[in-house]
Write a protein that binds this DNA or RNA. Structure first.
Lengths: 253, 253
DNA sequence: GCCCGCCGTCAAGACGGCGTCAAGATCGCG
DNA sequence: CGCGATCTTGACGCCGTCTTGACGGCGGGC
């Protein structure tokens, strides 16, 4: 469900927004100060922030900058100030839209939908931002953005044992290796670590959740499966390396 | 250079916008009718459109829909109408922002920067191929602008199992496949993703609205119907691919 | 040289996701 | 007011995935 963070010091308006948004099926969190807003945003990870500029503790621009320091979450600003100056400042600080009070609830909701729509398509296109999205070895290619693994680097690996469904691809072309969600997640964590060692405990936390930490047999299971699917000779791993007694590491040659 | 398309029938305002935008370093194209706007947009591929709703030839919503049929270009609407109703209609039709006349040039420019900034993160699109209005496979053709699907690629697929109503079309000619609104919407989202994976949640958000996110059975239902209508062998999908545990993907071969 | 712990492997059962079928609800149209 | 098309919702069975346990080999420590 879409999470909205509403930041406003007027109890009245905060309640009204909360009720209206919840009625539309949004998951709403409320904050009444800038500090509380920043904390809630970090913890709650909202999909959109509705921010009143007239907060008691922090200046509006400070809140926007505090958010923009680490997140691209869409921000709709509410303000009683109609002046152009204020709008320009807020928008250039990183806000996505600016609505002057008093405003109609229908308009705000429509602007909210428009902003969410725009942000959603943007987020879907670039995974996070920058960062290496494709890691290549001489036997396979891991595409973190597209969430895919393709067999075939410079010198194509051996023919895959069984590929029934996919039409015959030209030799040397990229052929997809199907991974289950958990397999992918394990591989992703290792690849994102960029060659650094990942302890068993870290892996379990990332993939299975914080309440796991001792189930090392899970890792043995999934590392074996990944090696079977990715390594040229699974018995002698070249890429998915075991560090005995510590954890695992992805080596990109 | 960033290209802006300005659509307005008032000569005065058109000129003012043109001058101001050019002074800021934008590359500006001008149109004074809806028809001209659509044509210029297709040819010129602007990075943003500023659209006056009070055009002589076409209704404002028509112009927005005409653009949204094939492009995600950001649209800022100008209008003399202050009513909420008009704003909601325009924004829900696909506009990104709505500015009422008279407006301050500084505010418009700030809103323009904010909208461009938000849209830019999406600019890192798959290699220049840009936005295709028509996507073709060897069994059918999806026309995003015309909102149609035609059976027939190079070598026409087998005869459809049950097509009673349509008159006998000449062999190899394009025959339209009728899709319901929801079917079309699902297909459109998948095709627009351009081969990238779309999670179940994203699909539900786009098609059914943000308050949906867990009704995965809807997707099963509609994906099955689309496969029945589009796939040569619905039991073994070639185009509408399931990524188990994650979502769906459109594969254009 | 023996014991113990860690790791790779195999196998089986539990579980949940996915495709499918089917029926009711809803809406627009004649 | 009745009909058809479409959307919504529920149920069911199959299959792939996940979970869990057990076994054997290998190496290191004592």
């Amino acid at each position: 469900m879409t999470r909205i963070l509403v930041v406003d010091d007027e109890r009245q308006l905060r309640r009204a927004l909360g009720v209206n948004l919840r009625a539309r099926g949004y998951d709403v969190a409320l904050a009444e100060t800038g500090a509380q807003a920043l904390e809630l945003a970090a913890r709650h990870r909202p999909d959109l922030v509705i921010l009143d500029l007239g907060l008691p503790d922090l200046d509006g621009a400070e809140v926007i900058e505090g958010l923009r320091g680490w997140t691209q979450v869409p921000i709709i600003v509410l303000s009683a100030r109609h002046g152009e100056e204020a709008k320009v400042v807020a928008l250039d600080a990183g806000a996505d839209d600016y609505v002057t009070k008093p405003f109609g609830m229908d308009e705000l909701l429509a602007r909210l939908r428009a902003t969410l729509r725009r942000a959603e398509t943007a987020a879907a296109r670039v995974g996070g931002s920058g960062e290496q999205a494709v890691v290549e070895t001489s036997h396979f290619t891991v595409d973190l953005a597209e969430r895919r693994v393709l067999r075939g680097g410079r010198s194509g690996g051996g023919a895959s044992p069984a590929s029934a469904a996919s039409g015959a691809a030209p030799p040397g072309a990229a052929e997809e290796i199907r991974l289950t969600p958990t397999e992918w997640h394990v591989l992703e964590v290792l690849v994102r670590a960029g060659g650094r060692l990942v302890t068993g405990e870290q892996l379990l936390h990332e993939v299975w959740g914080p309440q796991y930490g001792t189930e090392l047999n899970y890792l043995r299971q999934y590392l074996a499966q990944l090696r079977r699917k990715l390594e040229p000779t699974p018995a002698e791993p070249r890429y998915l390396i075991t560090e005995p007694g510590v954890g695992y590491r992805f080596r990109a040659e």
